[in-house]
């Protein structure tokens, strides 16, 4: 019965199918404001929780800790530090990338949170954990209210100059 042996999987009939669904996600209350500022003013915004003394980036409508609603908005730094990173040699479908991509988790300065984004203008062998980086924005015309409005993060210039001095 159900323990019948099938040696060659091609002996089994297969049925092909797919899920034909499209999605359109709203950004939500907090997300809409965040992306509007990103697009129009190249600003990174966060929401402050006064109880927990935290600024959430990306901003949230509520504090996940004390569960209070958050409506204090603050412009935060465009700079942060590399919390951890990886160098991707293959693409999402498993194909080899022509040029490796450095993906980093970047903690924005003085806030709780940050982003996973690409690192640019830097050679992969020069990347270090703790490295100070800054966001490089697309031009106003190119920005469309997406995380890709930030092209990538690159080593922070000011910090580098300081180090060279």
């Amino acid at each position: 019965m159900s323990l019948e042996k099938i040696g060659d999987p091609r002996d089994l009939t297969h049925w092909m199918g797919h899920m034909e669904t499209d999605y359109s996600y709203t950004y939500g209350i907090a997300g809409e404001k965040f992306f509007k500022e990103l697009k129009e003013n190249a600003k990174i915004m966060g929401t402050r929780c006064k109880n927990c003394n935290l600024i959430y980036v990306p901003p949230r409508l509520f504090c996940e800790r004390c569960f209070e609603k958050l409506d204090t908005w603050e412009t935060v730094s465009k700079r942060g530090s590399v919390h951890t990173y990886t160098i991707a040699n293959i693409d999402i479908d498993g194909s080899k990338l022509k040029k490796p991509i450095i993906w980093a988790m970047i903690k924005i300065d003085n806030v709780h949170g940050g982003f996973v984004h690409k690192l640019g203008e830097v050679d992969s062998k020069d990347v270090e954990i703790g490295m100070h980086v800054e966001a490089v924005f697309k031009s106003r015309k190119e920005r469309e209210g997406s995380m890709l409005d930030i092209k990538y993060f690159r080593p922070a210039k000011q910090k580098l100059e300081k180090a060279l001095r």
Binding site: Y25, T26, Y27, G28, I29, L61, F62, C66, F67
Partner: peptide
């Protein structure tokens, strides 16, 4: 259609339930 994300909607309902019970997330 509501503008809120799913988690924002979940928060609003959860918060109202907690408030009505006189409790906090703690």
């Amino acid at each position: 259609n509501l503008k809120e994300t799913g988690r924002e909607l979940a928060f609003e309902a959860s918060k109202m339930a907690l408030d009505s019970a006189g409790l906090t997330r703690k």
